[in-house]
Design a protein around this nucleic acid. Structure first.
Length: 869
RNA sequence: GCCCGCGUGGUGGAAUGGUAGACACAGGAGACUUAAAAUCUCCAGGCCGAAAGGCCGUGCCGGUUCGAGUCCGGCCGCGGGUACCA
């Protein structure tokens, strides 16, 4: 054989792994277990570079752990429910189920050639009734434990299509299909009581040492614990209280009005008798439900005419306004505003000509307020001008705490801890999701379905005629027979719940299901006990909050219901968040000015290949199907092989950082692998051509190597051990790109080395091993060519010999006043004083000193010398 | 708006507070070849200089330090999340 033929090599070794069954995970007492998991994919139809990157990283870890003696679990499945399947059915006919399973087959077919060390026997899709039936069982258990309940919540409502819209389906405040202005509307929905766990989820973040600090911080801010003051303003007309919650009680003396949410009970009550209030509330209900839309919306206010008294001064009356920026979900849905020390309040007061009190705390002296509020940093000491709390200087937090104490002592307020975290609404008015297993009965109310009736399966058709997905709304709502059932409690005719579950529910426990994927209960304790927790979880940073927080909640809830051991309450021991693969977005506009997106492969030099129309280029963003800025890895694999694709996605970018995909570079990766293959072949040929005693001396050299016999051999062996050390550290710390750079350097040295054939032979075999987590097929091939026994995948990972890592002399840079001016070479363990002497004898130093004495000489052993003049 | 990141040559990027630019891509020069491809060797941050060497340089402004890409403060730009995209 004279050429590196990836396709042939890869097919052969994948077959060999399959035959040996080495990736099939079984419980074992002899080896430590290691569970590595990558966030499972949504079956959109094609794998993309982000998948290749994600699964290759996980595979490197899995293969490395296998060769370091671990019992590895590395499963794969499909996050298969969700909107795109319904959209596809809506756009081009067909059925979400057929579309989804077809996509899964396609994507599995695209993934398998990557040679991932996955235990495919554990594969499942969340849309399998065997999976979502167990999810329904979990729901019933949660219901039993009081972890699920119903309440009203707002949704995006499209008044033309008469349907609920996802946030993604609201574009610039309008429905994506109808173009109608979206409204907010209340519906009764199911909620998980995640808020019961706010404190626990917050505190436990401190135990997640192997999670990125940024993710822990984001979750901490998301949970948003705050200690504030709750108290009432008394109405001047009827004496009724308006209860407010504030995290800034220290600004109470700057209050200029009391604001209530448009959804506050008082606002609703006023709307009943006052049409103007009703109109204002309707105005506030326009637009989508996202926090971003609410926060960025123009601030609107309405004066109710009601007045309230300031708690510290009955003579001081404040107006009560309805304001659209006050959320009913947080606190009491009512606040007081302090324009001097809050920019949003100030803007609002200026807009509606409300009174603005001069600043009354300050870093220097109080200032009259113009257009900018004075907001001192929380940690800065602030002078306290109004003395009602008895303190006159404090940091922000001290002032807040003092005010709370003051109010509690005076008896007009209570310190209250609140969390920003809201309960998790799981109801979705859609077909392609896990049905919520409850029944609505006129006599009995909401009744849970009996466990023996699970799964409550989605109907495939309507008694022989296909379900109509083209009509807006949830097809389950209008299904002629599925909805009708009997009440599990009384046996009378009743109706099924037609809402399905949020797809985040599906992905909140799949990691546990992988430990017993075919069980007839959600989990099997013995298996969960053995395999949990996930030792290394890998996925996109975009999941830093929702998916990971929901999973942490779900694991706790499953533990409470006896489905997971206590230790699994934090299910992911270590988390690595990879960056995204990004690409430019190519856009044109249709006749209505709406954006139309184009695939990179359809664009050439800024123009559409088909029509020559110029495209607008939008800067790189996360590859997403809806923006069509995706690159198909299948082309790369077909052209160069899986090892090239794997090597390439790992080599060019640090894993945690976003990487912009460019076509150039895959070629280079392939060239390198070809060079490695050729070198291995040349070494193998040497044996075949009978280079004297190669096999025998190889055996000797494999057992041990003694330094000092031959300088060339020493050099290569030292480099080899250094590379083993660096690559091992690189793999363990997700420094894949740096590890690959070291492998390049080592191979470059090997290919130029004139060391003995047997020494080169040894170096090459170790190189193949070190590369094997990244390029498993090529490594197997080389391993076998060079007489390795068995599979390299199962061969023990090479160990660096510490004695070979020690250098006798080191090169120290000499800085003069922090700028590098010279180098000296000194024995490694020379003491500081000696080093200083040598440094001061250096020509460049003598020249710079010009006879003077240095002010200071800093010697950092093994690092640097700095002479301060 | 708010929370969290990121910003280094023509490009991807390397660098426990200690020689900025490892390793690679693209580029240039050369070897081999009838030729091309492939392969191999060498060069390469910018400016000045024949060279030795010098000056500048990690988004911008300032600070801490003997020493800052790295730590701190303030900006600018880009990205992720923002609870119904997954």
């Amino acid at each position: 054989m004279s050429r590196y033929t990836a396709a042939e090599i890869e097919a052969r070794w994948q077959q060999a792994w399959d035959d040996a069954g080495i990736f099939r995970a079984k419980r074992s007492k002899n080896k430590p277990k290691y569970y590595v998991l990558e966030m499972f994919p949504y079956p959109s139809g094609r794998i993309h570079m982000g998948h290749v990157r994600n699964y290759t990283m996980g595979d490197v870890i899995a293969r490395y752990k296998l060769s370091t003696g671990h019992n590895v679990l590395h499963p794969m499945g499909w996050d298969a429910f969700g909107m795109p399947a319904e959209n596809a059915a809506m756009a081009s006919g067909g059925h979400p189920k057929d579309w989804t399973y077809g996509n899964i087959d396609d994507m599995r077919g695209q993934m398998k050639p990557l040679g991932l060390s996955i235990d495919w026997s554990r594969e499942f899709a969340t849309c399998d009734p065997e999976y979502y039936g167990q999810q329904q069982a979990l729901f019933l258990d949660f219901l039993d434990k009081g972890l699920v309940y119903r309440k009203n919540a707002v949704v995006n409502w499209d008044p033309v299509d008469m349907t609920v819209l996802a946030n993604e389906q609201v574009i610039d405040g309008k429905g994506w299909r109808s173009g109608a202005e979206v409204e907010r509307r209340e519906l009764t929905q199911w909620f998980f009581k995640i808020s019961d766990f706010s404190e626990e989820l917050l505190e436990a973040l401190d135990t997640l040492d192997d999670w990125p600090a940024k993710v822990r911080l984001m979750q901490e801010n998301w949970i948003g614990k705050s200690r504030g003051l709750q108290f009432s303003f008394e109405r001047t007309d009827d004496g009724d209280p308006i209860e407010v919650y504030t995290t800034r009680p220290d600004t109470l003396m700057g209050a200029s009005f009391v604001g209530i949410s448009p959804d506050h009970p008082l606002a609703k009550e006023l709307a009943e008798s006052n049409p103007e209030v009703a109109v204002f509330r309707a105005e506030c209900a326009k637009g989508g439900t996202t926090e971003e839309a609410l926060e960025k919306a123009e601030k609107l206010g309405f004066d109710t005419g009601i007045k309230v008294r300031h708690p510290l001064n009955p003579e001081w009356e404040l107006p009560v306004w309805i304001a659209n920026f006050i959320l009913m979900d947080y606190g009491t849905g009512a606040i007081f505003a302090c324009p001097a020390h809050d920019q949003r309040d100030l803007d609002f007061c200026r807009k509606y000509d409300l009174p603005v009190i001069d600043t009354f705390f300050a870093l220097q002296d109080p200032q009259p307020v113009g257009t900018e509020a004075f907001v001192p940093p929380k940690t800065d000491k602030v002078k306290w001008v109004d003395h009602f709390t008895g303190i006159d200087e404090a940091t922000g937090q001290e002032a807040i705490d003092a005010t709370i104490d003051f109010a509690e002592n005076a008896g007009w307020g209570t310190g209250v801890t609140k969390y920003r975290l809201r309960d998790w609404g799981l109801s979705r008015q859609r077909y392609w999701g896990c049905p919520i297993p409850v029944v609505h009965c006129d006599a009995c109310g909401v009744v849970p379905e009996k466990k023996e009736n699970l799964p409550v399966e989605l109907p495939y058709d309507e008694g022989g005629t296909p379900i109509d997905f083209a009509t807006p709304g949830n097809p389950l709502d209008r299904h002629p027979t599925w909805r009708d059932c009997t009440c599990p409690a009384c046996g009378q005719p009743a109706q099924r719940e037609t809402d399905t579950m949020d797809t985040f529910v599906d992905s909140s426990w799949y990691y546990a299901r992988f430990t017993a994927p075919r069980a007839t209960t959600p989990t099997v304790m013995e298996e969960a006990e053995y395999w949990m927790n996930v030792d290394q979880y890998i996925g996109g940073i975009e999941h830093a909050i929702l998916h990971l927080l929901y999973s942490r909640f779900f694991a706790r809830a499953m533990h409470i219901c006896g489905h997971l051991p206590k230790k699994a309450c934090e299910p992911f021991d270590a988390l690595f968040t990879q960056g995204m693969v990004t690409h430019e977005i190519y856009q044109t506009r249709d006749a209505n000015g709406r954006p139309v997106y184009h695939l990179p492969e359809d664009v050439e030099e800024g123009r559409l290949k088909a029509t020559g129309e110029a495209v607008e280029i939008i800067p790189s963003a996360k590859m997403s199907k809806s923006k069509k800025n995706v690159v198909d890895p299948v082309n790369i694999i077909e052209a160069y092989g899986a090892d090239t694709a794997r090597w390439f996605v790992l080599s060019d970018s640090p894993p945690e950082r976003d990487v912009e995909w460019t076509a150039a570079g895959a070629e280079a990766a392939h060239k390198f692998l070809s060079r490695v293959w050729r070198k291995a072949r040349d070494l193998a040929d040497m044996r075949d051509e009978g280079v004297k005693d190669l096999d025998q001396s190889l055996q000797e050299i494999m057992d041990s190597y003694e330094l000092g016999i031959n300088a060339m051999d020493d050099e290569l062996m030292r480099a080899m051990h250094k590379t083993i050390d660096e690559v091992t550290k690189g793999v363990e710390s997700f420094g894949f790109n740096a590890a690959i750079a070291k492998l390049y350097a080592f191979f470059n040295q090997l290919s130029k080395s004139s060391a003995a054939a047997s020494v080169q032979w040894r170096a090459m075999r170790v190189l193949a091993q070190l590369m094997s987590p990244m390029t498993p097929h090529l490594s197997e091939e080389i391993w076998t060519m060079l007489g390795g026994e068995g599979l390299v995948a199962e061969a023990p990972w090479p160990e660096a010999d510490a004695a070979m890592l020690i250098e006798d002399t080191v090169t120290l840079p000499i800085q003069i006043n922090g700028k590098r001016r010279a180098e000296i070479s000194v024995p490694k363990d020379m003491d500081k004083a000696e080093v200083e002497k040598v440094a001061l004898a250096n020509d460049a130093v003598i020249r710079s000193l010009d006879g003077a004495q240095p002010k200071k000489v800093i010697v950092v052993p093994g690092r640097i010398v700095n002479v301060v003049i």
